[in-house]
Design a protein around this nucleic acid. Structure first.
Length: 271
DNA sequence: ATGTCCACCTGCTGGC
DNA sequence: TGCCAGCAGGTGGACA
């Protein structure tokens, strides 16, 4: 599920539920996910009040009034279930709030993570340090991409997945943005023309913003903090559409594998 | 440094 | 109802 738009949707869904509330109870149903949970996670959170819920790249940040920030990553299959009607098979961490609401971190594949960091040390928290620019922020510019792509021979598509360059893009939206910008995903990153980079930046933004808008609308159904509805509601132009006609009206969508991941594109449109 | 490949884990789908 | 291969939105580590 989770690329930047899905994490943003989760964060926006959690914020009104969590901010101003205290954790009355924290249950951990295993030792960890991708990494072990930090020592004392439950004790350190229990009784703490949430002061803010933010996103950085694909990380969710839940700040408390005790000087700690809970950092979560949803991996490939992570979801936050709000007031789950049942005990989910993969509800690994369950947070009960002082008003009775419950948030369950559910993650079948367990590629997600959950950590607790001193808020004043967040900037030096190792997983956040190497991250590149936020794609929806002011720092993503054609000049920035030109600088980061210079001399790189890797195809541009896998390089867009490198969180040290653009933080938050994932496999779906990298494919979609390259289609919008009419860039061949196989092209060496360093050889992408300035004109194409000028198209790529707005393509990335438009793709992510459209998806956030779709996810955001699913929040009307306020039990949906997992972004699932928005995910399905979003219609992809090339992702997952191998063999189907290109939405630009010429050619057929192809699927190739780059760096072990599927890339979908239209060779007739993307050069 | 850069590029390439693999591992981590469960669930689902489609073919036989 | 079965079995198996292949696929999935991410990332960190090993290796040349």
């Amino acid at each position: 599920m989770p690329e930047l738009p899905e994490v943003e949707t989760v964060v926006r869904g959690l914020r009104p539920v969590l901010v101003g509330r205290r954790f009355a109870r924290v249950e951990l149903h295993r030792e960890g996910l991708r990494f072990p949970f930090p020592a004392g996670l439950g004790q350190r959170l229990t009784g703490a009040a949430v002061t803010g819920v933010e996103r950085r790249a694909k990380f969710g940040l839940v700040a408390t009034d005790r000087g700690d920030t809970m950092v979560f990553h949803l991996g490939m299959s992570g979801r936050m279930r709000l007031d789950p009607p049942d005990r989910g098979k993969h509800d690994h961490a369950v947070f009960t709030l002082d008003d009775g609401h419950v948030v369950a971190f559910n993650d079948a594949r367990r590629f997600g993570s959950l950590d607790l960091v001193a808020t004043d040390a967040l900037a030096s928290y190792p997983p956040l340090v190497p991250l590149g620019v936020e794609p929806l922020g002011p720092d993503l510019t054609p000049a920035y991409l030109a600088m980061r792509f210079a001399g790189r021979t890797v195809p541009v598509k896998p390089l867009l997945l490198d969180q040290r360059i653009v933080a938050g893009l994932g496999n779906i939206y990298a494919c979609e943005a390259l289609f919008l910008a009419r860039i061949d995903p196989r092209r060496a990153a360093g050889s992408v023309s300035r004109a194409k980079l000028e198209r790529l930046v707005p393509a990335i933004r438009a793709t992510l913003e459209a998806s956030i808008a779709a996810g955001g609308s699913s929040l009307r159904d306020h039990a949906q903090v997992d972004g699932t509805l928005g995910y399905f509601a979003h219609s992809f132009r090339v992702y997952g559409r191998e063999g189907l006609p290109c939405p630009a009206g010429r050619g057929t969508v192809r699927r190739i594998v780059q760096g072990g991941r599927s890339t979908f594109f239209c060779p007739a449109v993307q050069r």
